[in-house]
Amino acid sequence: MSEVWFVIAGYGVIVGGLAAYTLALGRRLSRARQASLRIRGEVESATTADVGE
């Protein structure tokens, strides 16, 4: 196997891995922010109901 293939494999995994992790992190953050907003809304409405009772 030519050393060029090792270079391609080296850069491919490292640079590709960085890109994949960055995208995955962005998606995780976006999902977490949506969930946080939804849960905050639910908690606020539940707390309001508690006060009403």
Binding site: T22, L25, G26, R28, L29, A32, R33, A35, S36, I39, R40, E42, V43, A46, T47, D50
Partner: peptide, 23 residues
């Protein structure tokens, strides 16, 4: 970005706890 995610996850945990207490 990872710091922001950790903070958001912590907020979700906190809200979840508040929700359970409320329920």
């Amino acid at each position: 970005r990872r710091y922001q995610l950790a903070r958001t996850e912590w907020q979700i945990e906190e809200h979840g706890r508040l929700g359970r207490i409320s329920a």
